[in-house]
Amino acid sequence: MSPSRTRFALLAPAMVILFFAAAGPLVIVLVYSFLIPGDYGGVVWDFSTDAWFGVVAERDFFTDQLSWADAHLSVFWRSIKLSLMTSVLSLVIGFPTAYFIATRPKGSRDVWMLLIMIPFWTNLLIRTFAIMELIRNEGTINTVLIAMGLVTQPIQMLYTEFSMLVGMTYVYLPLMILPIYASMERLDFSLVEAGYDLYATRWQVLRRVIFPLVKPGVVAGSILVFVPCLGAYVTPRVLGGGKQLMLGNLIELQFGQLRNWPLGAALSLTLLVIVMIALIFYVRAAGNEGNAHG
């Protein structure tokens, strides 16, 4: 078979599934974003750009004045901010952990990996509730802190951006650790040794030798954490207390109680564009990386 036909055959199964159950139906969303909302959810088949307009601007129902839709903009901003923070925090915790596992004796690495994964075999909602139990005012952490005399009043952690950050980091951590581990596991430590032979410090070895070698894993992990965070729904809903929406919640509201499907569709596609831009940078970076190695 010619290379291009092989390539086609290899890609076909994934593409067929994705086309039918992910990308294809997205066309529906694109079409919906140019329609008029139905009175009780759904859409009316009339062309309109109102939904797209509504993403960034709104008309005040009272004064009829046009202004920035600062409700939407503040939700966008919060989502991007928290997703970035979650990615960074996951990296700070996940990189050393992956390194730790990758430097264990060969036989026990899989066991360490499974130890990481076991907590995640418990359902997301249940884990989120367990976190809520830990950090609520009368919860475990505050009770212990008060009993130890470290604080007199419970610290308000639940229903803050802090609790959302903690929750999302907890939820998405394995998405950071696994890809880093996968590319670190084959790290050639003779290169590291060579570094030390050249009198490099541990920090220099980490930064100049190890990090570049596992960069594909770091980039993959960061994407796998950042992108789902942007559209997260369950964790912000439970730990954010419904007072601080993230994009996933805002979009869900439009398809639910607020009954504005076209706006929901337009908001989603806006999110999609943001992510696309991030990913294009990734493809460029990863592409160069691949060529350098290949």
């Binding site: 009175d39 709104e58 129902f61 600062d70 409700a71 939407h72 503040s74 939700v75 419904g242 007072k243 601080q244 929406l245 805002l250 509201l253 109680q257 607020l258 009954r259 504005n260």
Partner: peptide, 14 residues
């Protein structure tokens, strides 16, 4: 009326 309520609700929960 629901449209107005939606706007208020978005403002409230943002």
């Amino acid at each position: 009326v629901q449209k107005i309520y939606s706007q208020i609700w978005t403002e409230l929960t943002k």
